[in-house]
């Protein structure tokens, strides 16, 4: 195994550049180093001006999503040795505006998220005083998978529909809507006006890349297809409106 590996890192400095360029850095190649460790090596030892987000470095905070050799990935869980002998191309997540270097703007998602009402609306909730709602493990299983979304935005980056049609609500937002739709004692129809629209589930053409990109096994593509069935039954079948 060689001692070093080349990182080709996208740099975008809005004050001096109109478009990103690739800059090469030579970083140590170690068995346990993730791409993120390589970037931190650049930051700490080679070029302190490099900008990128990261925090937990255990694949749960969702900060460090980038495009590594063309694929969206969490850089803390993507290892340099898997790309040896290199080079490794590190670019910002696709489909998002770039603020600087590897930092993208995700405000669009944060504006869309409240639209799908990602919270529990149940009719029978009178308050917390000593009341525990029962929920069997099976009921928990029904939605648990969709609750695992860490908002890392890899699915938006992988989704060609979102790239072409930015109004699309997108995989994560719809999966989170399904997470609350499928929780017990709630109605799946309170989000119908947002989800069953041209910018909602009907914009999805089932490419399926969101599910492949998801580092947490959420399966947003499945969530969307399931809701298509729900929405179709609700709007087309005569008894669906009940």
């Amino acid at each position: 195994m060689p001692d070093t590996i080349t990182l080709q890192v996208a740099r975008y400095r809005p004050e001096s550049e109109s478009a990103p360029t690739l800059q090469e850095y030579e970083v140590p190649l170690r068995e346990e180093w993730a791409v993120l460790d390589g970037l931190n090596y650049v930051k700490d030892h080679l070029d302190g001006t490099l900008s990128f987000r990261w925090s937990c470095r255990m694949g749960i905070c969702g900060s460090c999503g980038m495009t590594v050799n063309g694929d969206p990935a969490l850089t803390c869980g993507t290892f340099l040795t898997d790309y040896a002998p290199g080079p490794v191309r590190v670019e910002p997540l696709a489909n998002f505006p770039v603020i600087r270097d590897l930092v993208v703007e995700i405000d669009d998602f944060l504006h869309k998220l409240p639209e799908v009402k990602p919270w529990l609306v149940r009719d029978d909730d009178g308050g917390v005083d000593d009341v525990e709602f029962l929920q069997t493990p099976e009921q928990l299983d029904a939605y648990k998978q969709y609750s695992m979304c860490i908002n890392c935005m890899l699915c938006y980056s992988a989704c060609p529909v979102y790239g072409i049609e930015p109004d699309f609500l997108g995989p994560a937002a719809i999966a989170l809507a399904q997470r609350y739709n499928l929780a017990p004692a709630t109605s799946a129809h309170q989000r119908l006006d947002v989800l069953a629209t041209d910018a909602g589930v009907w914009a999805c053409t089932y490419v399926g890349e969101c599910t492949r990109a998801c580092p947490k096994g959420v399966d947003p593509a499945g969530a969307i297809q399931r809701y298509k069935l729900t929405a179709a039954a609700r709007t087309l079948l005569p008894w669906g409106k009940r």
Partner: peptide
């Protein structure tokens, strides 16, 4: 000034 990545 954000840079909007074009879709090829």
């Amino acid at each position: 000034m954000t840079y909007h990545q074009p879709v090829p």
